[in-house]
């Protein structure tokens, strides 16, 4: 395909037009990233008087640290839980809304709203709902004989943060799944119906495989979201507790760096996080470049 070639007469115009994005990237990403990498090789004493170069000591110390390994495990459980919960509910909603004719737009609008809410607000919302003394859910759960207390029970706390984090992401996933469902030709479903496939079978053998590019894309996006974008949710609800039960990697970076003022270790942790993002991004681009084989 031939694209129209624009020519700039002014030599500096292209640089000028690119400048805002480049400056923002440099100030808010490249510079802090470089700082973090540099700091991850340093150790500061408790009062911040002296800084010594320690090489990779910060990293080796991290992987010998039970608390850090625990945070890794917690992050894994949390991000998988959040991703699976938000994607499966979003897919369910998308399938249901896709079957509607007239009310489709109305439902879509309402289902997208939570996405406009800031993570911290979403966290507070769920914190209220789950609050052991004033929340509505513990009250209802008590009728079922469940004594809900996410302040004492680590599993309860994990369930709380997963629900709070997933809730917001459902909107996003829902939109993608709905668009994906609408791009599947109706005649395919009809052909499958004539071919004797039940409603459930049509979904699993035709619709779901055809959604696989979107599912994969969302899987990566959601894992990235759960690992890096959920600071607000954790901070507003459990603050990593009780007893480290919901202390995910991102939150631990903050706690170690800005609460405990252990800057070297905190920087090393953020470098590891950065490496994880790079890997996830490479996976996604590779896959999307290859597209799906049909």
């Amino acid at each position: 395909m031939q694209t129209k070639q624009l020519t700039f007469n002014h030599r500096w115009l292209p640089y000028l037009l690119l400048a805002p994005q480049v400056i923002i990237t440099a100030i808010f990403f490249l510079w802090p990233a470089a700082q973090a990498m540099y700091q991850s090789l340093l150790r500061q004493d408790a009062f911040g008087f002296r800084t010594t170069f320690v090489g990779l000591d910060n990293f080796t110390a991290l992987f010998a640290d039970d608390l850090y390994l625990n945070a890794l495990k917690v992050t894994l459980v949390f991000s998988l839980g959040t991703t699976l919960l938000s994607m499966s509910i979003a897919l369910l909603f998308a399938v249901m809304v896709n079957r509607m004719l007239r009310s489709r737009d109305l439902y879509t609008t309402f289902l997208v709203w939570p996405y406009a809410i800031a993570p911290a607000i979403a966290g507070v919302l769920w914190w209220f709902i789950f609050n052991p003394s004033i929340g509505i859910l513990p009250y209802l759960l008590e009728m079922l004989g469940i004594n809900w207390n996410h302040r004492a029970n680590g599993n309860h706390a994990m369930i709380l943060v997963i629900i709070a984090a997933a809730w917001k992401q459902i909107s996003y996933n829902f939109l993608f799944f709905l668009a994906g469902l609408q791009s599947i030709p109706q005649s395919l479903i009809e052909a499958a119906a004539i071919d004797g496939a039940s409603r459930l079978k049509r979904f699993w053998t035709i619709v779901f495989p055809l959604l696989s590019p979107i599912t994969f894309f969302l899987l990566v996006v959601n894992i990235v979201y759960a690992m890096f974008d959920t600071f607000g949710v954790i901070h507003a609800t459990t603050e990593g507790g009780p007893a480290q039960a919901t202390n995910i990697l991102v939150y631990k970076v903050y706690r170690d760096g800005f609460v405990s003022m252990n800057l070297g270790s905190s920087a090393a942790q953020s470098v590891i996080l950065m490496a994880i993002v790079v890997v996830l991004t490479v996976i996604q681009f590779r896959y999307i470049e290859r597209k799906v084989n049909y």
Partner: peptide, 20 residues
């Protein structure tokens, strides 16, 4: 009756082949 129970087969304008 459901389409599957009518013992008919249909050829669609866009063929409707399962792409995967």
């Amino acid at each position: 009756l459901e389409p599957a129970q009518r013992d008919i087969a249909m050829v669609f304008q866009n063929y409707a082949l399962y792409p995967h």
